[in-house]
Nucleic acid binder design. Structure first.
Lengths: 177, 177
DNA sequence: CGCATTCTGGTACATTCGTTCCAATCTGAG
DNA sequence: CTCAGATTGGAACGAATGTACCAGAATGCG
């Protein structure tokens, strides 16, 4: 089902945002029609009215957070990697739910090839952002892998936790030996 | 509940192994008493008899796969990183279920601090294995991050897929600029 | 060999889930 | 303003889940 009215569309995105919040708190298993609807402040039936199934709801939410994140990384073009550290900090600590959702997407992509494109989109955005500070493609790919690992580590460990620490870690990664 | 008889202990590990296989195929949401018991070839009640709850079952299985993996990495000490590439290949392609389970653990550790220690164990094992080919601690940490990102990428993307490709990627990572 | 303990395998139940259905309400184009 | 279609909100359903329970079988210690 696709929303045609403005209010309907507003409810759609309210539901998708709610999915991200539920996802952060309880993981994919906690994403149910009822929990998401309650989080969004809409009746439970709305989740089934706007989305074909619980699966469609989850996939749509992950696509949405990816597009949002890709847009954020696109703004990074032309800036130094000091600003890159700030973006990483905001993402993994302020907008933590969004970051966690992003990596849940990668896990889902392991089992569902439908999500490969969305996952690729995110990874390409990361590589392009890195290309600003490291033009060499081969070296850039390695940095992208390390940054990926760094983000993952910040998410499950909460470390590095401060902006200076992240900058230092990024300096080690980009700086090479 | 803790098994005291040899046969009981065998059932415990059979259940834990089944959890890993179910985890690979369907993610944490697919891990239920009944699905795991069916996969292990034991009656459903066995899963509740040997484990306090579905949660205990999941956590125990992830701890087990971590210990197994840490032991495998420990054997790596004193070898070249060419052999390291072979171990990575086996893990992410032959024993894929084990690798996926390992990263599910990291995700679970985001929300449950009980799992922090187990997750730390894995990450330390990775860093120690890398210390063999790169003694410098600071540089080694960066490599560990990149290898972490590489593993994640291989899992959700299946790329790099061949042993030579992994060796090349590893060479780029370890080799520096 | 006897027997306390552990293990087995099946059933049962309350809960929660995804999904369907429908009458009432709202929206916006003509 | 009208009204056809979109949206709402609640109820209800079958299915699947976690867990508790129990009578019988197997086990291993003395």
């Amino acid at each position: 089902m696709v929303a045609t009215t403005p209010k309907g569309e507003a409810r759609r995105v309210a539901l998708l945002d709610a999915v991200i919040r539920v996802l952060e708190a309880g993981g994919p298993g906690a994403v149910t029609h009822r929990s998401v609807a309650a989080e969004a402040g809409v009746p439970a039936a709305a989740a089934t009215y706007y989305f074909a199934g619980i699966d469609d709801l989850l996939v749509s939410a992950l696509r949405r957070v990816t597009e949002h994140q890709v847009a954020l990384f696109a703004h990074l073009r032309g800036h130094s990697y000091a600003r890159f550290a700030a973006v990483l900090y905001d993402w993994t600590h302020i907008e933590r739910a969004s970051a966690i959702a992003q990596y849940e997407l990668l896990f889902l992509a392991m089992r569902r090839h439908t999500l490969r494109d969305a996952a690729d989109l995110w990874y390409q955005a990361l590589e392009e952002a890195i290309a600003v500070v490291q033009p060499d493609a081969r070296r850039g790919r390695v940095i992208a892998l390390a940054v990926d690992g760094l983000i993952l580590r910040m998410l499950w460990r909460g470390d590095p936790a401060t902006l200076p620490e992240i900058e230092a870690a990024l300096r080690d990664i980009v700086g090479g030996r």
